[in-house]
Simulated scan of single mutants.
Amino acid sequence: MRCPCGCGDTIELMVLDGARPRWDITVDHSGRPSLHPSVWRNIGCRSHFWVRRGRIQWCK
């Protein structure tokens, strides 16, 4: 996915069992994805956010 901050970086998130770190993805009845845990970039723009029901929720 592209970083939602607008920096243009590509973010790769592992969703495979046994991968470390690993994210869980769920899709609701309307097709909106959610990720758990939050995405916290420790390089580049250093964005920290949740994807919940297809929307970005920025951590403060």
Rank of each mutant, 00 (worst) to 15 (best):
W40L: 10
S34G: 00
L16K: 08
M14E: 14
P21H: 13
P37Q: 00
D17L: 14
D24P: 05
R53F: 14
R2Y: 15
V15N: 02
S34Y: 01
W23A: 02
M14S: 15
T10R: 05
G8V: 07
C7T: 07
V39L: 02
G54H: 07
G18S: 12
H36N: 03
T26C: 06
W23T: 01
N42I: 14
G44K: 01
L16Q: 15
T26H: 09
R53S: 13
A19S: 15
W50D: 10
S34I: 00
P4N: 05
L13A: 06
L35K: 00
V39G: 01
D28I: 09
L16S: 15
V51G: 04
G8P: 04
C3Q: 04
P21K: 13
V15P: 00
C7M: 02
W23V: 00
I43E: 08
D9K: 01
T10D: 12
G31S: 01
G44I: 10
W40E: 11
V51L: 10
K60N: 13
H48T: 04
P37R: 00
G8I: 13
S47Y: 12
G18A: 12
C7F: 11
G44A: 04
V39E: 01
I56K: 03
I11T: 06
W50E: 06
C3S: 05
R53C: 09
T26G: 01
N42T: 10
S30C: 11
M14N: 14
P21S: 09
T26F: 12
D9F: 08
I11C: 05
C59L: 15
W50I: 03
L16G: 13
T26E: 11
P4D: 11
I11M: 11
R32E: 12
G44H: 00
I25W: 01
C3I: 10
D24C: 05
V15C: 09
I43L: 04
R52S: 07
G44R: 00
E12M: 14
G54C: 07
I25M: 11
H29C: 08
L35E: 01
G6I: 10
V27D: 08
H29R: 04
P4S: 04
P21W: 15
H48A: 07
Q57T: 11
R2Q: 11
D17M: 09
V51Q: 02
G54Y: 10
C7A: 06
R41E: 08
Q57G: 13
M1W: 12
I11D: 10
S47D: 06
G18M: 13
L16W: 15
P33Q: 00
H36Y: 09
N42V: 07
L13P: 01
S38C: 08
V51F: 05
C7S: 04
I56C: 13
H29Y: 13
P4G: 02
R32W: 07
W58C: 11
D28R: 03
T26N: 03
V27M: 05
I43H: 03
T26I: 11
R55Q: 11
R55I: 14
W50F: 13
P37I: 00
C59S: 15
R22L: 13
Q57M: 14
P37S: 01
P33S: 04
I43F: 11
S47R: 01
C7I: 07
R46F: 11
L35N: 02
C5D: 10
R55Y: 11
R53E: 15
V27F: 15
G6K: 01
F49P: 02
C5S: 05
C45V: 03
C7G: 04
T26L: 08
P37V: 03
M1F: 15
G54A: 10
